[in-house]
Design a binder for these strands. Structure first.
Length: 216
DNA sequence: CCATTAATAGGCG
DNA sequence: CGCCTATTAATGG
């Protein structure tokens, strides 16, 4: 059975809250809404409130002038989306789509704002968390414009290697989703990965990629 | 097995 | 590079 409090406890900024406070949060939220892979969790027109990924993965994207998808972020378990709207940000062009079967919990915007009034410490955490995310998303957008396809892949893999502390990386996303996140086509991703492998900078075995010592 | 989806190859603009 | 299509590999029932 689904435990609403556990769901919220996966979220960094809620983790350390005392039970009584968590219970209040639980009361303001909807729990365990399921979405199949490929289905839309939040469309561009609706206000989804604060969305918590309980299980699965989802991509946040908007459409550019030509109607092409621009992937802004990939959400994983325990991550949240929609804080921007609490600060008045207009997210009418932002969509969220489940990449795999995904369960989310959501907190009503107005109720959450009320909650924040009574819990300034959470407000502060939320603000810091939001700030970090903005920086990350901005950096990601910058990398997309500054690097070509092969370099983008390489930079991503290096980042992953550093984060996990291992030369062997297991891709958490399907290659086509990762390609979209990097702003390139699945075909280009596949080809550039081949080239990197041919150059001896890495070795690919399915979703496992081993970075070679000399090139890192 | 068959059906579906993901990954790869090749051609082309 | 991306887009399109064909082929192959990987999954799932």
């Amino acid at each position: 059975m689904h435990d609403p409090e556990k769901c919220l406890s996966k979220v960094e900024i809620f983790k350390t809250l005392p039970h009584e406070i968590k219970e209040k949060l639980v009361a303001t939220s909807k729990h365990q809404q399921h979405y199949r892979a490929g289905s839309i969790i939040k469309s561009a027109t609706e206000d989804g409130g604060l969305i918590v990924i309980d299980q699965g993965k989802a991509k946040v994207f908007s459409l550019d002038e030509d109607g092409n998808e621009v992937v802004l972020n990939i959400l994983k378990m325990g991550e949240i989306e929609g804080e921007g709207e609490l600060f008045g940000e207009n997210k009418t062009n932002t969509w969220i789509e489940a990449l795999e079967d995904t369960a989310v919990c959501s907190i009503d915007k107005n109720k959450f704002q009320k909650f924040l009034e009574d819990n300034p410490a959470v407000t502060l955490k939320l603000l810091n968390n939001f700030g970090e995310k903005i920086v990350q998303v901005q950096r990601h957008e910058m990398l997309k414009s500054a690097f070509n396809a092969k370099e983008r892949i390489w930079e991503y893999l290096k980042d992953q290697s550093i984060e996990t502390g291992s030369k062997i990386i297991t891709l958490s996303l399907k290659k086509k989703d990762l390609a979209a996140y990097l702003g390139i086509s699945a075909e280009t991703f596949s080809r550039q990965l081949k080239i990197l492998e041919k150059e001896g900078r890495l070795k690919v075995k399915g979703r496992k990629i081993e970075l070679k010592e000399k090139s890192v």
